[in-house]
Design a binder for these strands. Sequence first.
RNA 1: GCGCCCGUAGCUCAGCUGGAUAGAGCGUUGGCCUCCGGAGCCAAAGGUCAGAGGUUCGAAUCCUCUCGGGCGCGCCA
Length: 583
Amino acid sequence: MKTQIEGLLAAALEALGDQLPQDVAPEARVERTRDPRHGDFATNVALALAKPAGRNPRELAQLVVANLPASELVDEVSIAGPGFINFRLSKTAFEQEVRAVLERGADYGRSASGAGRSVIVEFVSANPTGPLHVGHGRHAAYGASVANLLAATGHEVHREYYVNDAGRQMDILAASVWLRYLEALGESFAFPANGYRGGYVQPIADQLVAQEHDRLRRPAAEVFRDLPPDAPEGDQDEYIDAVVARMRELLGEEDYRKVHALGLQEILADIRDDLAEFGVTFDRWFSERSLTELGLVAECIDRLQSDGHVYERDGALWFRASELGDEKDRVVVRDNGQTTYIASDIAYHLGKRQRGHDLLLDILGADHHGYVARVRAGLEAMGEPGDSLEVRLVQFAVLYRGGEKVQMSTRSGEFVTLRELREEVGNDAARLFYVLRSNDQHLDFDLELAKSRSNENPVYYIQYAHARVRSVFRQATEKGLGWTPAAGASGLALLDSAHERALMASLGRYPEMVELAAANRAPQNIVHYLRELAQEFHTWYNAETFLVDDAGVRAGRLALAEATRQVIANGLALVGVGAPDSM
RNA sequence: GCGCCCGUAGCUCAGCUGGAUAGAGCGUUGGCCUCCGGAGCCAAAGGUCAGAGGUUCGAAUCCUCUCGGGCGCGCCA
């Protein structure tokens, strides 16, 4: 609808030709009005052009209006306030839009505005050292919704999970698995303070027992001989690193790798299943280790070196990030010869560009904001545009049960997992609650509210509207009242209540909402829109009976109801929430 | 100390990249089922958009400062 108005306006400006400044000011736009008394759409072109044209805005507005081509879509054009041009659309325009919803079905709201643009969305990317917790759930829901929005607007979208399988945390996981294995075989000792103590480690250790029996068993006395003290007397980090080193020494690299791989494989499988059940899938799980194994990190460092972007100091190799917008220079190769995560990240992001993606969209935790300048500097050093990287930060989610905050601590292994949350409140409620708030706003996630079956809960409120339409159609069938889209389309002309007109107008806004939400990476726009749409539907439902005797009116009302259902279903799909036939 | 994010109704939050009289939900108060699903609807009350400057036809929105909250500032990822 908006595009059609823009078309009319463009024609008018064209007709005026050189009577106006050549360049239409970029801030000149066609927008929805907020107040229905101002019609349906308004444009500020006259205001925007007044200054460059050196003319009175109202006078300009009259000129524009006089040159607007006639259209059956517009009932009235008026000039208001300082020089706004208001358009009141015709009933025909609204009916046409409802027909478009019925014709395009699940495709209604999709556009090609992003066609030809390839976006790689990286999200979740949680360390595979344990199950996902509720914070990761927010990343998953947000990232998946944004990816859906981009796909719906025609972008070519690639979803990726970066697997941090190369770092120290993974070594600690391997050690934790092995120690639980030793315990299972009867060794006894104090579990390291900084090891992974969560219950999920045990089944992996048990599997190791089943596979290897006691082949990897070593006496505890040998394992812990002459290690530095653990916390609280000593340093827990130093201690756990010593345990890892001892493990590698006692098992040898091959068997060490075996345990490491088992831990990684099991936890990743769990994460993958968890996300899949949550409706979140990836096109690729990208291994950090593969970057090193394929020599891409080394290649990247070579390039930095030959282009003069690095220097040596204190035995380490430093990247001149501060010359490219970062706060300080960063170590890419440590004094022990190991590359740092920054080197991997640069290689990884460069690879994303080399794979042909125009936009690299990273969804990261708010605590990673310092990382942005680093990677951007890296991309620029590699000759890639810094603005090809876009980062959206997701703020923390805090769980509440009723009014009580649910305490969590990763350290003790006492955190609520995403799986537990999903089992408690259901996937639909979880998906919707996670994207209800703007990503850069802290989220208070109330478990009781998410479970409640009342109008406090937007999930049920929106789904209920969808189910109600289905129910009405079931009733119609039972009463032997048939309905066809064709009959519905012609029946629309018979609808003229304020509720019906308002509902039609809201349906027509959907494509703009998708466009907007995609551009702003703001799935909450869709949720809020759906809530309003459901509200208008419920209001209409209470005010009017659909299954009336007059076949024409009945067909029209069913058409409008069906179109509403379709848009609700389309919108819910974007945020990964189901549209049930009954509840 | 420096950097990033946030501050909107009693509570939880929207606010369409600067538009016309700032909106929802909950909560509070008062109404609506012989009728397609009451998991619903209608109505009322509730605001110095943290504060102060600035930019302009026009600011919750953009800029500066102040106050308050969160998060960063490793040869960890």
